[in-house]
Amino acid sequence: MVENALKVTTDTARCIGAGMCVLTAPKVFDQSEDDGTVVLLDESPPPESHADVRRAERLCPSGAISVREDPGTA
């Protein structure tokens, strides 16, 4: 079975720059040099990153990361 593609969105207004996402999924998230808030590197990460991206969503202390399945592009 092919896993559905994921669509990641981030909300820099909510982000508090704890850096958990950068540690958990460094290929998908970075931190801005200006204010330390989240920078989304890949809004449709490859399947091998999915587990890390979901973990980053759970660990984010401010709820600034949303991950949803994108059935259209499976």
């Binding site: 508090i16 720059g17 850096g19 950068v22 931190q31 040099e33 200006d34 204010d35 330390g36 808030t37």
Partner: peptide
């Protein structure tokens, strides 16, 4: 305040 400090405490800087 948090915003001003967050910019100084990035994973990269640490």
């Amino acid at each position: 305040y948090r915003r001003l400090l967050t910019a100084q405490f990035t994973v990269r800087r640490m």
